[in-house]
Amino acid sequence: MPWSTPFDDPIALHRGRLETLQQAADYIMKLPEDLQQEERWQVAVAHLINAAERGGGWLMFARIAMLRALRGG
């Protein structure tokens, strides 16, 4: 599944939204390094990678992991 694959429902942010796996990955990469290392973001990264590599239900899991990370756990 390409990184340009869209989520079924975009993830709303305070300013804008994340519509694809790539946009979600880019969002995480722009976070400060110490935040990127937090477990919640590491879980989100792992799910994004699984979604890109395996597709299927992993896309939903990646979206959920991003939502949880954005909400602080």
Rank of each mutant, 00 (worst) to 15 (best):
D26L: 08
A44D: 00
G73W: 02
A12F: 05
A24Q: 02
P10S: 08
W3Q: 05
M29P: 00
Q23F: 00
E39G: 12
R17E: 13
A25E: 04
P2N: 09
R17F: 05
M1W: 02
F7Q: 09
D34W: 12
L35H: 14
L13K: 13
W3R: 03
Q42F: 05
M29K: 07
A24P: 05
F61P: 03
W3C: 01
W58K: 12
G56C: 14
P32Q: 05
M60F: 08
Q36L: 10
A25V: 03
K30A: 12
L31K: 10
L48A: 09
P6L: 00
K30W: 01
W3E: 01
D26C: 06
H14S: 15
G55P: 13
V45M: 04
L13Q: 11
E38A: 06
L59F: 05
A62S: 10
L18H: 03
A44C: 04
W58H: 15
D8T: 14
A44F: 00
G72R: 11
G56L: 12
H47G: 04
D9C: 08
L31T: 11
D9G: 07
L35K: 15
M1K: 12
N50Q: 11
K30H: 09
Q23H: 02
E19R: 15
A46V: 11
A69P: 04
L67P: 01
D9F: 04
R71D: 14
A24W: 00
L18Q: 04
T20C: 04
Q22L: 09
Q36A: 08
R68P: 02
A24K: 01
I11M: 06
V45R: 03
Q42N: 07
D34H: 13
G55K: 09
A44V: 06
F61R: 15
Q23P: 00
I11L: 12
N50Y: 02
V45C: 06
P6N: 06
L48V: 10
G73A: 08
M66S: 04
L21S: 01
A24I: 06
G55L: 08
P2Y: 00
I11G: 03
R15N: 15
A44E: 02
R63V: 02
Q37F: 06
P10K: 06
G73S: 10
R68T: 01
G55D: 05
E53T: 14
D26W: 05
E33H: 14
G57C: 06
D34S: 12
L67I: 09
A46D: 11
E39K: 15
A12N: 10
G56M: 12
A44N: 02
I28K: 06
Y27H: 13
V45A: 01
I64A: 08
L13N: 11
P32R: 07
L67S: 05
T5Q: 10
A62I: 07
H47P: 06
R54N: 15
